[in-house]
């Protein structure tokens, strides 16, 4: 109790600073997203083969890439947690896994919607889609483990293990279109992308979308970390209240 009442003033102002930073980030994200929408719908050229529906590309690809980033952060923070065993690492790992699951779900959904007019099928059991679905399952399991573990302590350790092992699937997803025959197009950005896979203007708009989506990702991640922080403090208070 005394620790809470006598909270050092420095920490509170730091937290207020963080809250302001989140607000600013939200504002920047909103502006970026508006510009991005203008670029996608008004500036980006219509694809010669696929037509207007190809504009889904500018959300589908950045969202997929940022889901990978989420799982990378989750794995790194999981390693950090296993070494240091501090709440802070776990908070980051948990938040990034949840945001990553939201992003990979949206990547799957936008892909499904895009596939219907282009492939003439909503879903195909081909390597890219299958490995992505497995990725989704792995990190849903990550969140379930936390939920259902007998003690929070065990939930943290076990989910960290799952998050680290699960990350193995991320490079498999990326390289799947390279390794296996697939109906999914080959990589258009990253180390394995073919030369000239994208027209310069398309590549530029894609990069802009990536930046805008990164801002959104960062905002959601910070918001989630902050939420975890408050909820942790709340449950700690409740525990202390109950043991009084």
């Amino acid at each position: 109790m005394a620790a809470i009442a006598g909270r050092p003033a420095g920490k509170a102002s730091w937290q207020r600073g963080l809250r302001d930073a989140r607000l600013w980030l939200l504002l920047i994200t909103a502006v970026l997203m508006l510009v991005d929408g203008y670029l996608i719908f008004m500036v980006a050229p219509t694809d010669a083969v696929l037509g207007h529906v190809q504009r889904i590309f500018y959300v589908h690809v950045p969202i997929s890439i940022l889901s990978f980033l989420g799982f990378l952060i989750c794995a790194v923070a999981g390693i950090g947690y296993l070494i240091r065993r501090t709440e802070r690492w776990d908070r980051v790992a948990h938040a990034s896994a949840e945001v990553g699951v939201v992003f990979v779900t949206l990547a799957l959904v936008t892909g499904i919607i895009w596939a219907r007019p282009v492939w003439n099928a909503w879903w195909q059991w081909e390597p890219r889609l299958t490995t992505t679905l497995i990725l989704w399952f792995i990190y849903v399991a990550y969140l379930m483990i936390r939920q259902y573990a007998p003690t929070p302590q065990q939930g943290r350790t076990w989910s960290a293990v799952v998050g680290i092992i699960g990350f193995v699937d991320v490079p498999i997803v990326y390289y799947s279109v390279q390794w296996w025959q697939s109906i999914h197009p080959k990589q258009v950005i990253g180390p394995e992308a073919a030369e000239g896979a994208l027209e310069p203007i398309m590549a530029q708009i894609l990069v802009f979308s990536l930046v805008a989506t990164l801002a959104l990702f960062t905002y959601l991640l910070l918001e989630r970390v902050a939420l975890r922080g408050i909820e942790d403090r709340l449950s700690q208070l409740r525990r202390e209240g109950n043991t009084d």
Binding site: T110, I113, W114
Partner: peptide
């Protein structure tokens, strides 16, 4: 090319 706008907006 085909338009398929409903799919675009749905996504």
């Amino acid at each position: 090319p085909p338009t398929n706008l409903p799919y675009l907006f749905a996504a």
